[in-house]
Nucleic acid binder design. Structure first.
Length: 276
DNA sequence: AGCGTCACCCGGACGC
DNA sequence: TGCGTCCGGGTGACGC
């Protein structure tokens, strides 16, 4: 369930090298691409990817929303991990991984594996990254994303906070977990309407979104950990997945409701809904 | 415009 | 133990 902090962690480790993902991929040149699950490739096609990528070098790596963006010599490779995807750099003699549905082989014998147990992830090869990420909302952690801007965005809509914050065209990078966490930090009910917030509430929400994301970054995204990465699954969550357990701030049992087909966790005391 | 619903997947949790 | 069933998660498509 990688959200912004988890994707950012993958980007950092693939760029600089890291303990769980191997050495940097920047500078490596693609030799061939193995596609075992053609539907992994969103565009142009498995064959298209296999024809276009060989010979191109990874010049750089960045993130936009939940997308990883590999800048290549001629094209741009984008990967969306969805919930269960992960990327690792392996050597020539690495043991096989039955969930590595797409593998990018480099000329030096190493490879970048896209493992994805649930097969929801997507690979895109396009000329310009904007073709895929052009419609995304602002980056919540960018310095130019201000409380004032968020206030204008919220006021321009008439929607419940939870589904609106999950909407990647509204704001890029928040998923189900950090949205619940941010709303709890802000003391705002998930069903509050976006144009009903006071200026003070907008500012608190802005702060809370950034605080929740930065907390995730500090833990290298380990606050979430991938579902299928063994071990810990350590939780630093205040509400997510804690239904029935006491709110860490006031002790009231955390509630779970479904909003737009999404499990939504909140404290009925700290996050009151006016008029109820 | 906004909302609801479905489809896509499969490991894990749960019930028997 | 094994078997069946359901759930969840991000997103896009579709209908109202």
């Amino acid at each position: 369930m990688p959200e912004l902090p988890e994707v950012e962690t993958v980007v950092r480790e693939l760029r600089q090298g890291g303990p769980t993902r191997g050495a940097s991929v920047v500078g490596r040149t693609l030799a061939r691409v193995t596609v075992r699950w053609p539907r992994h490739i969103a565009t142009p096609s498995a064959r298209g990817v296999q024809q276009r990528l060989p010979g191109q070098t990874i010049l750089g790596l960045r993130r936009r929303g939940k997308y990883l963006i590999f800048d290549l010599t001629h094209d741009v490779l984008l990967i969306h991990l969805k919930m269960s995807g992960d990327l690792t750099v392996v050597g020539p003699d690495a043991p096989p991984d039955k969930h590595a549905h797409t593998v990018f082989h480099f000329t030096d014998g190493s490879a970048l594996r896209f493992s994805d147990t649930r097969k929801f992830g997507k690979v895109f090869v396009v000329g310009q990254a904007e073709e895929i990420v052009g419609g995304l909302g602002p980056e919540p952690l960018e310095p130019d994303f201000t409380a004032k801007q968020l206030g204008r965005m919220l006021a321009a809509r008439h929607r419940q906070l939870k589904p609106l914050l999950l909407d990647q065209t509204f704001l890029a990078g928040l998923g189900n977990i950090y949205t619940d966490e941010a709303l709890h930090l802000a003391g705002l009910h998930p069903l509050r309407l976006s144009d009903s917030l006071s200026a003070a509430e907008v500012r608190t929400l802005w702060q809370s979104i950034r605080r929740a994301l930065r907390a995730g970054l500090r833990h290298n995204g380990a606050s979430i950990d991938w579902v299928y990465r063994g071990g810990g699954y350590q939780r630093h969550f205040r509400v997510y997945g804690r239904a029935g357990r006491p709110c860490l701030r006031c002790g009231t049992p955390i509630r779970r409701m479904v909003v737009g087909q999404r499990g939504t966790h909140y404290c009925p005391t700290c996050q009151p809904l006016p008029g109820k």
